[in-house]
Design a protein around this nucleic acid. Structure first.
Length: 498
RNA sequence: GGUCUCUUGGCCGAGUGGCUAGGCAGUAGUCUGCAAAACUAUCUACGCCGGUUCGAAUCCGGCAGAGACCUCCA
């Protein structure tokens, strides 16, 4: 029985508002689309949380043996600073401010995005399409929606007709739980005369004003695509008219994802996505991290410790572990105190992993109780991940296994059968490395360091035998100050580099 | 203002109608020359007020506080 068949996954589907059993369209193939960043500035830590949440989800699917096509776009055009009426394209604005070509901005921040995610050990997507690379596909989609009569042209721009879409059986609001009567009643009166028939209509194509630098020819004149359209066009192109999972940050639920559903249904006649997943926000000082309000923390500031909010630097792996300790659908508040706790926990976990891998199996007295306990804990790891990717609960189980590993080390006895012992190794490593993407932190160990430390440990042991504790403690304490911790046990002294 | 969500011990954070989450911190013990690490034991909970129930922190209602979306945001 394959792991795919033996693990039934439940997913909280935002569209239904409840957990559902996940039924892929054509297992073992699986299509997932995640909304990527708008590359007009550096990705901040809050952005990273969403991408890391979905990285873990994709990793778990792969771990189970799914053949995942993971599409994550780069938004490099069409995203307006204000609203669809008189907004300026975000990339264009930044290009004007930095006196660069828009594509220089795009390149600069795309590279930053890739570099940051790679530091966090996130897997690259299978396809990473850009909005500007799919103008034709977007135009084709607009034409299809126009043909259905669900969009209209106004002064060189094309708008989606939400009211008509709903009148003809559409259900705009189904994802975000809004009804359009409320939206109409509650919408602010816009200054000036709107081109839109109704305020909730959204742009599929915008006419470019003369000063707008990013512009393309279209059947309706020179302009640029609306933001919501790119994801619909690229999702359809690479994953089909209907695919398994669409993910993104909670803040994209409305209007972005709501509009995607409407566009997909209007164009193709089917709801584009079976399972909508939304990752919750990372907050700083109790407020959402947001580029526009400046309440942000950059990964680089975290890794270097150069920020007033931070007591010290934290490694990417510690930050990743910190995020894993909260469920992806919960708000997570960032603080130095919380990170400190995670840092210690992370080291404890990784040290147990390394100790386990160095432990050779020796036949001894096998305890059936111990065997069963370990097997149950392994099953719990799967069960917890199967339950809407509950990473914090899975980590709690891993710590129970840490306890078991340390106990075997302390007692110098393995009371597990060889089969269970090997399974423990395989699963413990598998969950930490493959599913959670946690790897040992980079050390400068090139082999010579081992020899140097063996030498120092030997010198310290001599000093201890001569009761020269001043010297032995000096060696221990000074090594500790530079992050090398000596650990004494009856078998001798080992060390850990932090 | 409208829609929705959250409120757990010193901190961070899971979770369930009755059974120890876990991490960090604290306390005591084992070990140690002293520590650290590890092991053992252990202390702090479920915003407030009602209701349903044999039993609720968990379900329902009200109140208070916080947040998200309604405009660009992961």
């Amino acid at each position: 029985m394959s792991k795919i068949d033996s693990n039934t996954i439940t997913i909280y589907n935002s569209l239904k508002g409840e957990k559902e059993i996940f039924k892929p369209i054509s297992a073992p193939n699986l299509g997932i689309y995640v909304c990527g960043p708008t590359v007009y500035s550096n990705v901040h830590l809050g952005n990273c949380r969403t991408f890391l949440s979905f990285d873990n989800i994709v990793r778990y699917f792969k771990f189970l043996g799914y053949n995942v096509r993971y599409v994550r776009n780069i938004t490099d055009a069409g995203h307006l600073v204000d609203d669809a009426e008189q907004g300026e394209d975000k990339i264009s604005k930044k290009a004007r401010l930095e006196k660069l070509e828009p594509m220089e901005i795009v390149q600069k921040y795309t590279l930053d995005f890739h570099q940051v995610l790679s530091q966090f050990n996130a897997l690259p997507p299978s396809i990473e399409p850009t909005a500007t690379g799919h103008i034709q596909e977007q135009i084709t989609m607009i034409n299809a929606i126009l043909d259905k009569g669900l969009a209209y042209e106004a002064n060189g721009s094309i708008y989606f007709d939400v009211k008509k879409y709903n009148a003809e059986g559409g259900n705009y609001g189904e994802l975000s739980g809004r009804n359009i009567e409320d939206l109409m009643a509650g919408s602010r009166a816009l200054d000036g005369q709107s081109e839109k028939k109704n305020p909730q209509d959204f742009a599929l194509w915008k006419k470019a004003s003369p000063e707008h630098i990013m512009r393309w020819d279209s059947p309706w004149g020179v302009g640029f695509p609306g933001w919501h359209l790119e994801c619909s066009a690229m999702g359809t192109k690479y994953l089909g008219e209907q695919f398994d999972i669409h993910g993104g940050g909670m803040d994209l639920k409305f209007p972005h994802h709501e509009c995607e559903i409407a566009q997909g249904k209007a164009c193709n006649g089917v709801s584009p996505v079976n399972y909508w997943m939304h990752a919750n926000m990372l907050t700083l000082n109790g407020q959402k991290m947001s580029k526009s309000t400046g309440n942000t923390l950059l990964p680089e500031e975290l890794f270097s410790g150069k920020n007033d909010l931070l007591e010290k630097a934290y490694s990417p792996m510690v930050v990743r572990f910190f995020m894993l300790q909260a469920h992806y659908r919960s708000i997570l508040d960032f603080s130095s105190e919380a990170l400190n706790a995670s840092e210690k926990g992370f080291h404890k976990l990784m040290e147990a992993k390394s100790a386990l891998n160095n432990l050779m199996y020796k036949p001894g007295v096998v305890s059936e109780t111990a065997d069963k306990k370990v097997k149950d804990l392994i099953a719990d790891c799967y069960a917890n991940m199967n339950d809407d990717f509950n990473t914090p609960k899975t980590i709690a189980v891993l710590f129970e296994l840490v306890n078991k590993i340390n106990k075997m080390l302390a007692e110098k006895a393995i009371d597990l059968s060889e089969i269970v012992f090997n399974e423990l190794k395989e699963i413990f490593n598998g969950f930490i490395e493959d599913v959670f993407g946690l790897k040992p932190e980079i050390t400068t160990n090139n082999g010579k360091l081992d020899v140097v430390l063996e030498l120092l440990i030997g010198m310290r042991n001599n000093a201890k035998q001569n009761k020269d504790y001043a010297l032995s403690d000096q060696i221990r304490d000074e090594l500790n100050n530079i992050g090398i911790q000596l650990k004494d046990s009856k078998e001798g002294t080992t060390y850990t580099i932090k």
